[in-house]
């Protein structure tokens, strides 16, 4: 059940960050028009970025762990 709560927290954090970033990149003041196409592309780009960052970070942790740094 703890694992499940953490999973929920992670999805909530992901949704919040994507919404903030894609709102910032796709919509501009006076916010009269929806930009659904841009939001969909931005979501796809963000998920790909998440994977790139995640791989790079885990690689650094493993490298530091192998070399005895941590």
């Amino acid at each position: 059940q703890i694992a499940q709560e953490l999973a929920v927290a992670n999805v909530t954090e992901l949704v919040n960050k994507i919404t903030e970033n894609c709102f910032e990149k796709c919509l501009t003041s006076p916010y009269a028009n929806a930009q659904e196409g841009c939001v969909d592309q931005c979501l796809a780009k963000y998920m790909r970025s998440w994977n790139v960052i995640s791989k790079a970070y885990v690689a650094r942790i493993q490298q530091a762990s192998t070399s005895g740094e941590i």
Partner: peptide, 9 residues
Amino acid sequence: TNIRIVKGL
């Protein structure tokens, strides 16, 4: 935007 992101995910 929030609703669209949730549906997209």
